[in-house]
Design a protein around this nucleic acid. Structure first.
Length: 265
DNA sequence: CTATTTGTTTATCC
DNA sequence: AGGATAAACAAATA
């Protein structure tokens, strides 16, 4: 489920615990989500710490618990964060952090998500060395042009799904961006000229802002004039021209597009 | 029982 | 060497 907007939404679920102290920590420490994490350190360091900050970048989340205790969360395909008033006991509630406002819980049935730990004063490298955010200053047309040139044979969709280039974009946002911009997702990246990359950048930023506004704040249902509500329906039609949508695998992922609105160049 | 999944990493092939 | 593609991971759902 989680792309950048959903990550935004889930990060806010833990927000009421900001400024609160951790009372206890429980987890399914042998589960895959803790691969590479120092779970012993987590159990030793987290209790007594205060949640002092939280941030998202793309699909990554970083929580700061007082000095020298950082918790990274990636939701994978089915991860969720929640704040529960009673102690969560679900089969897939793999990390539970008790605070005075409730239990912070990370649930993930498919275990594609990931929890990372870092016990130093400064934030971890994987956070400070992340690529430019889509809504940030460094996400320029020129920056994209260099990447599109380097990967000119790759389908556009493959670039949109690349987290080092479009951090936070996932399958539905990639389809939404291509549809709004009028590009076939299978189009080789090298076929886009400078003006088209500029258009793609503008649409990407707009879809990102729209998704954060609609889904990221309260998980509202996206409006019907987006592709989003139509792309998985049987007999699905393009919300702009009513032509039946195409569905096929592009860059290894199921992709929906409108053959009328999205030209092949 | 089979096919599908809003993600990422690794292996393999070109 | 670098990039594209498929498989693997794991579990629920249709």
């Amino acid at each position: 489920m989680p792309e950048l907007a959903e990550v935004h939404f889930f990060q806010r679920r833990w927000a009421p615990a900001r400024g609160k102290r951790v009372r206890s920590v429980h987890g399914h420490w042998d589960k895959r989500i803790f691969r590479g994490a120092d779970t012993t350190g987590l159990r030793r360091n987290l209790p007594g710490k205060t949640l002092t900050g939280a941030a998202t970048s793309g699909k990554q989340m970083l929580f700061c618990f007082g000095p020298s205790c950082w918790l990274g969360v990636h939701l994978g395909m089915t991860g969720k964060l929640d704040l529960a008033s009673d102690k969560p006991t679900g089969k897939h509630d793999h990390l539970v952090i008790e605070s005075s406002v409730g239990f912070l819980v990370f649930t993930d049935p498919r275990l594609f998500g990931r929890v990372r730990t870092h016990f130093e004063p400064s934030p971890p490298d994987w956070w400070t060395q992340r690529p430019p955010d889509i809504l940030g200053r460094a996400f320029t047309t020129n920056y994209l042009e260099r990447a599109f040139h380097r990967r000119s044979k790759s389908p556009l969709k493959a670039l949109l799904l690349d987290q080092s280039l479009f951090p936070g974009i996932g399958n539905w946002m990639a389809d939404e961006i291509c549809w709004r911009a009028g590009f076939w997702p299978g189009l080789p990246a090298g076929n886009l000229n400078s003006g088209q990359i500029q258009l793609l950048r503008r649409v990407t930023r707009q879809v990102t802002r729209d998704a954060i506004r609609v889904i990221g704040t309260d998980w509202s249902r996206p409006p019907d004039h987006w592709l989003f509500n139509h792309r998985w329906e049987a007999g699905h039609r393009c919300p702009r021209c009513q032509h039946p949508l195409n569905r096929n695998s592009i860059a290894g992922r199921t992709t929906a597009w409108c053959s009328v609105c999205q030209s092949l160049f």
